[in-house]
Structure formats: C-alpha cells, structure tokens
Amino acid sequence: MHAIDTEDLTKDYALGFWRKRPYRALDRLTLAVEPGEVFGLLGPNGSGKTTTLKLLLQLVFPTGGRAEILGRPAGDVSVRRRIGYLPENPYFYDHLTAVELLDYFGRLLGIGAADRAARIPRLLDQVGLGAERRLALRRCSKGMLQRVGLAQALLNEPEVVFLDEPMSGLDPIGRRMVRELILGLRDRGATVFFSSHILSDAEAVCSRVAILAGGRLVASGLLTDLLAFGIKGWEVVVEGADTAAIERVRAMAARVTPIAERRYAVELPSTARPDVVMAEMTAVGASVVSINPLRDTLEDYFMRQVAEHVRERQVRA
C-alpha cells in the first residue's frame, strides 16, 4: 500500500462569468509516495502544486482520475484522523489564541482533554512559539501563523503530513526549525508530502521529488537521479590582485567580475584547476577570500525543465 497514490488526477476550473471556459489546473497526475518518504512537490507558482494538495484533501473535487491516501479514497473522513495538513499561508480565527485553536482542532480530532493538555504546549514549544501562544491570532505575524499552522498539522501525530509551502514566511531560524521538524517526522516513520518553489529547502530534506509545470508532471524521481551532481566549475574570490595578475588569470577563466577595488570574482570552468589560480595570486601578494565549487543544483534543473516545457508548448502551439 502506498501512503499517497494518484492516478490521472485531473482538475479543471471554470473561468469567466458568462461563458465558462475550462482551465486545466492539473493534468493527469500519476504519483505514488511510499510510507516513510519525504516527498517534495516542486514547481513555480501556478504549476498545480496547491491544486494537487487540495485534491488530496478533497477541498476541491477532481474532474477526473482518482486519489488515495493510506489505501482509502481521498476525502474519507476516517483517513483525516491520520493525516495533517498545513495550507499555504494559513489563516485561522481572529478571536482565538494559538492554544485555543489547537484545543478546538484537538476536539474535532477526537483527542481527549488530558491528551490535549499535554500535547499542545509541547507542540507549541517544538514549533518555537513562546509567549505569543496566548495572543489572539489576529495579532500574530505571518511567521507566527505559519508556526501555528505547523503545530495544528501535527496535532494528531499524523501518519501522513501535507505541507503546502511550509517554509514561506519564515526567517532562517524558522526554516531550519521546519527542516528539523520534517526530518524528525521522517525518523518517526511518518510520510511527508510537501510543496515548495524554494528549491534549496527541498534539496535539504527530500528523498524524492516531482516537478510540476503548467499543471503537468514534467519529472519525478530520486534527487540524485534527477541531478547530475558533477562540478560545473569553481568560483574564486580574490583580493589585492593587480591588473597584470588578473589579466593572466583571465586567460583560463570563463568570466572575471570586478566586485570592488582590487577585488574580483573569478569563474573557472571545470577543466581549469583552482590551485593554479591560487598559486598565481599568492605570488603577487594577493589573497584568496573564498573558493566554491559550482554545481548543478535543483534550481538549475528546475529552470531547465520548466524552460523545456514552455518550449514544447510553444512548438505545439
């Protein structure tokens, strides 16, 4: 049994007021996510990520295809006891505090009063919500709401967690918290299905990803399969180099960018050797500030895939 399973999942929205034109938000998505996986659904805005999540939670009804969670049809009320969901830009009730909200949701989930009293403060600690938990939610910042949203998604110790853009609205500390949270869920054996358009976040936690563009699945698989992790080259930042030395380096560099007075970023192709540049610089009394490998990232891959998809569409059109 898959944790999440979709087959030809399709959603058309009607656009326009009088003459409804169908707009295909998701086109025949077929996916299977294994239990215990951290699965990233990636794609630019409007690519169908949120639609997929809403279909899985039956917030919208599919035009075609089917979706199953834990072997039961999506929308099955009994399944919802076993899942958690963080919507994109979550918003709750103005009049409640975080604690009250979690208590309300805990009741709906059928969690006993004693369990709620024990679990809620622990969860709020975990998502890093301090004294703000006693603040009416209308006074909460976007980042705080995101944390409350995470807490409510985890309230029932779910087997499958759906996170829609979990990092959005968070500062770097918050992002790290989410990363740790996701890895913690994985260690606990839960399945995490999350969407993001910020790809470095996905790189850090995902085992598998699917890439959507224009409502279609354009690629899916293990991150290592999708990405050629070979080094494309190097970036060396030097300081105190004179013009003559830079001219000598320029011969082997792909590009030299002046950053400030006597400070340059030198981009080397993968065939060049960075130690030669370092020696050259040391010889003229300049110093190397940093040296970084240039690798093919998910970002690049993603951009390539989307560009290809767009080209394909233009060709077809």
């Binding site: 939670l57 039956q58 917030l59 899942i83 919507p87 709906l108 409510q152």
Partner: peptide, 14 residues
C-alpha cells in the same frame, strides 16, 4: 474568505 476552512476540513469533520 480567510481560508481557515482548509485546515478545518482536513480534520475529520464532514
């Protein structure tokens, strides 16, 4: 309007 229904309906509520 405030999208609170999203997290609410992910709970076992018909």
């Amino acid at each position: 309007e405030r999208h609170s229904v999203y997290s609410l309906l992910a709970k076992p509520v018909r």
